[in-house]
Design a protein around this nucleic acid. Sequence first.
DNA 1: ACAAGAATGTAGCCAAGGCTTTAAAAATAC
DNA 2: GTATTTTTAAAGCCTTGGCTACATTCTTGT
Lengths: 147, 147
Amino acid sequence: MTKDPEDNDAPPNQPERFQQARAAQAMAILEDYAEMISDLIEEMGEARITDIASRMGVTHPTATKAVARLKREGLAVSRPYRGVFLTDEGADLAERVRARHRTVVDLLVAVGVPPETAEMDAEGLEHHVSETTLKAFERYLDAAAAK
Amino acid sequence: MTKDPEDNDAPPNQPERFQQARAAQAMAILEDYAEMISDLIEEMGEARITDIASRMGVTHPTATKAVARLKREGLAVSRPYRGVFLTDEGADLAERVRARHRTVVDLLVAVGVPPETAEMDAEGLEHHVSETTLKAFERYLDAAAAK
DNA sequence: ACAAGAATGTAGCCAAGGCTTTAAAAATAC
DNA sequence: GTATTTTTAAAGCCTTGGCTACATTCTTGT
Ligand SMILES: [Mn+2]
Ligand SMILES: [Mn+2]
Ligand SMILES: [Mn+2]
Ligand SMILES: [Mn+2]
């Protein structure tokens, strides 16, 4: 069943696929923290390091580092011992991420995934859903709604 | 619109969701390399470091490190200057990963995502699809096939 | 007002996964 | 059979994202 070593069935864009997946992953933490900070400000009026850390399931120094990266990238601002706030750009990102998260969960449920599981999986999946795919999901959900 | 700081709308299992996403991500590279090594052996009779690297879109020292980790985890074996081979466990993983990858692509396409985009996104998405979700995808595809 | 507790900051460790550079070995061409 | 090219190996650097341990600063209760 082994083929001739000469031929090569690999899709020519395979490296790009992996590179794309790695790029998406590099954004994932930024996205989750931005969304979380936005959630906390909405729910509790401010986003404190302790709360961010506890909801993300990490220790507080890890949360501090992530916030430092958000600040470095111009997505958040904060001063020592005060809460964390999002810049306009950060708030914008958070909003897009939140909407995408919802769409992903909705699509999973629409396709038969149990809601609990949908929420679980969406947390990782969302970061790899491209604009094109997101649009397709929305069309599918619209069509299903207008059933 | 700001709520009372007392209350807390966060789902109680939110930390677990993020931890689960991180755990899935930690497996992602192992999974992709196992699948790739399996592909190369099928297509070309052997999996050489150079070919692994070029298909993964990384430099060869990076591929060497990844293979070292696969070996450390008992998924692959290799000797200097010979190709890389999968253990039974590694081959098993590769087969599951390959099947899951196909299912994810198929579901995306079934839901209206263009095939090219489906292939792109699946490379990242697949690693976050749980068993439960995968089963749901299969049921959906079966139902659609028997439309 | 101040002591105790909670929150935050800081330093430093680790593993993973990228990279470049240099060296050795193998394969190929002549 | 030797020289050149290709492949592999090895060393070492960097960033990210986890962690623990310790120090500092707020906040709160009395
Ligand atoms: Mn997420
Ligand atoms: Mn999310
Ligand atoms: Mn993949
Ligand atoms: Mn794959």
